[in-house]
Structure formats: structure tokens, C-alpha cells
Design a protein around this nucleic acid. Sequence first.
DNA 1: GGCAAATTTGCGCGTCACGAAAGTTTCGGT
DNA 2: ACCGAAACTTTCGTGACGCGCAAATTTGCC
Lengths: 236, 236
Amino acid sequence: MLTAVTAAEAITSAVEHLARQPLASAHETAGLRERKKVATRQSLSEAAMRLAVDRGLDNVLVEDIAEAAGVSPRTFNNYFASKYEAICALQQDRAMRIGQALRARPAGEPLWESVTQAVLSQFGPASHTPDKAWIAGIRLVVTTPALIGEYLKVQGLAQYHLAEAIAERLGTSPETDMFPRIMAGAVTAAMQAAIERWLRSDPPVPLVPLMRQSLRQFADGMRGVLPAETELADSG
Amino acid sequence: MLTAVTAAEAITSAVEHLARQPLASAHETAGLRERKKVATRQSLSEAAMRLAVDRGLDNVLVEDIAEAAGVSPRTFNNYFASKYEAICALQQDRAMRIGQALRARPAGEPLWESVTQAVLSQFGPASHTPDKAWIAGIRLVVTTPALIGEYLKVQGLAQYHLAEAIAERLGTSPETDMFPRIMAGAVTAAMQAAIERWLRSDPPVPLVPLMRQSLRQFADGMRGVLPAETELADSG
DNA sequence: GGCAAATTTGCGCGTCACGAAAGTTTCGGT
DNA sequence: ACCGAAACTTTCGTGACGCGCAAATTTGCC
């Protein structure tokens, strides 16, 4: 794995590297080959998560995960570069699907609404409180120091993906317009904030309203914070 | 390294783990102990960066870095968990300093201005085009797949730090108000976007104006995108 | 059925992360 | 200036990891 690429191409390629992974949503399509790959990937990811949740991350070897998924340890590494990556794969997939969801929104719709809907669409029906396993999973990821790094990495990559989708909607090129990136950063942060706060909610509340509220706080907060209309800006 | 912590506390603690690292700015203060630690850390980080830049990341062992810094390999791991971490330490430190800079802004100043100044203050004088080594360093980090992950992680942690500083300024608690997190996410993304674009600038341009422009694009972009004033919002 | 391409697998190696304990340096009180 | 405690470094050892390589197996397609 050598390292010569043109600057910002690399990020894109890194994003694609993960984006290229078959999403679970590719269920319907394709031949046996593809379906098996998806299944294996999911198997591994789920096994990793489950084992880590109820046995403790440090007590799970790659070997265990592979065994639980019925493949050789070597195959594990064909899918994931580390057990951390395997554990975060679900988050990864969901994050990637948000970009897709955004592209699928009706053409005329205002960006804000599209983004909101795209995001919310990936967290189930509005009043749905996620099941125990999912909660335990997220909690594990957000709680375990060793996983936080991976989590942040996933979030970061998701930003690029989301930014591309936003740029498409705005009809601008990410090469010249920095706004999509920024917007994506804010939206991603809004999601994270909502999730964290949701994790802390003691009588557990449904996630989606919190998520919606977070995006609303984004909007409302910005209004109070934006500087006066840019007057005749300086240097370039 | 076991893993039982209360949910969102862990992130904070992870942030602190890195934030707690002595910053190079602690130069002036403290006894010999502290100063040596800072020196060693910096030594290691610089060695890692330099070696990676001109020899290729894959041709640098932890052992090499330790040797170049004049310490034992084991000591390297007392400071950094991986060579990637070592390489990104400079970015790490700068990111952390932005939070400090924000806290140091005059009390009455509007948030937007404070943030802008805090950010810009960490990228040198306005017309200063960074030196070759720094450029090569950033390019390496943003270009090498294996380092991108670490970079994103750093950015993610920086967000938390920045968010805390913003929350302080706004006088709200990050526990209940999600806006600081979101704002921090946007600002961080703005910085990244500016840096990437700057890396791509062919007749090299100074970074600071680009950074300023990015923040301006943030503001201007938001104005065009914000939804109509929230009317009587729903569920909570 | 059978060939080409993709995927899985076994093997091996160099590297890594980190616990434990002993050695060394710094600190603070007297 | 000395001494004991605390902090930091080092040596040693180990289990695990990440991945290149090449052989074996499975899948896709005609």
C-alpha cells in the first residue's frame, strides 16, 4: 500500500473505498456472489458487535468474530481492517445511506427540508424507540475509547459523502464551493449531538424527534449567530 | 483497558485524554519535568512527520521514530498509541489551541467574530504562506489513506473541544443545548474545506484568506438555506 | 459441462501495543 | 544539600494483528 496520490483525490478515494462496500440495501439486486458478500459482511459486523457488547471489547479476538460468522480469520480481514471497523460498519452503512436518501428526494424541494427528511429517514418511524440491541451497540461505540476513534472516522467520511450529495442538489461543484462541506459538517454534528443526548435520556425517548429538534436548533441557532450581511468582502 | 463508563462521559474523557497532553504553548511555564515531556513529545512528533514525508509512511517503523528522537521504542508508546497518532499530533495541538484562543477572546465580542478570529489566529499572519515542510506534512496527512482516519479522528475530537468553548461563550450547557456542537461541526468543516482547497491551489496562495472566505461562505450559504422561521414546532 | 474470474483460505512474517517490574531522574520538604 | 516519594524511562516478554502471497474453492456465464 504505497502512498502517491494527488492531494484531495485521496480523501475522495478513501470515501469511495468505504462507500463501495455493498450496502445492505443492495439486498434486492444482483447475483449470488454479491448477495453472499453482503451477507458475510453483515454476519461479521453483527457478530463483532454482539460479542463486543456482551463480552467486552477487549475479550473479543478477530478469531472469535470470524468463527462466529463461520469464516476463516483471514477472510475477516478481507472485509474489515480491524475489529473496530467491523463494529462500526453498521453506523457506516447508515451514514452512507443518508447520502443516497438525499439524492432520492424530489427535485424541487428546498435543501433544508430534503436534508431533514433524508436524515430522519434513516432512523426509523418517528415514534419508534430503537431496540435494546441497537441501543447497547451505539452505547458501546460511543462509550469505549478505542471505538470512539473509529466512530469519528466514520462520521468524517460520512461528511464527504453527504457533502457530495448536497453539492449535487445545490448544483455547485465541491471543488470550488466550500459550503456543501460545511453544511454537511453541521448536519453530521447535529446527528451526533442528538444521538448522544438521546443516549442520556433517562426515561428513554424516541430518537427521531430529538433528531428533528437538533436540526431545528441548528437553524434557530444560526439565525442568532450569523454576522451582518457580508459587506463588500476583502481579499480572495 | 476496560470499558465501563457512563455514556457521553466517555467522549468527554477521550477528548480530555488528548487535551490533557501538554501543549507546546506550555513552553514558558512549569518545571523541568513538564518541559522535558513537551520536548520529547514534540521530538517524536516531528521525527515521525519528517521521516514519513521523505521516506514514505510504510518505510518508517516506530523503532525508527524512537531512535530519531533519542528514546526507547517503549517510550514512544507512552506518548502515542501509534505512529499515525504521532504524525497527527501537530494538527491535534493546533486544533486544541483554537478552543483556547476562543476562550481568550474579549467577553462582549459577537460569537461569529470570536470564532473567526480564534480560528484565524492559529494559521499565522494573514498573508503568510506556510513553509515547505508544513505543506508537505499536511499533504501527507490528507493524502495517505492510512492517515486520513487519524486526521478525521483528530478533527472529531477538536469539535468537542471547540463546542465546549462555544457553549461557554453562549452561556449554555452542552448537556442540554445542542447548538454549540453543531456550530463547532460547521466551523471544523469550514477549516477542513479551506485547507483542502488551499492544498489544491496551484499558484500557492496564503491560507488565511481562504480560511476567512470559507467562514464567509458558511455564513452566506446559511442565509440562503435556512428554513422559514420555525412556526410552532411539534414534539420534543 | 467447463473455463475464467472472483472469493476464500492457509501460511508466514514483520510489526505493533501494552503489561510488569526494575532502573533512573525530578521534585519538594527539611 | 540531602533524602524519600513520585514521575518517567527502559528492558523484556507476549499475544495479537494486518496483510502479502499462492493454492484451493466457489460463482458466473456461454
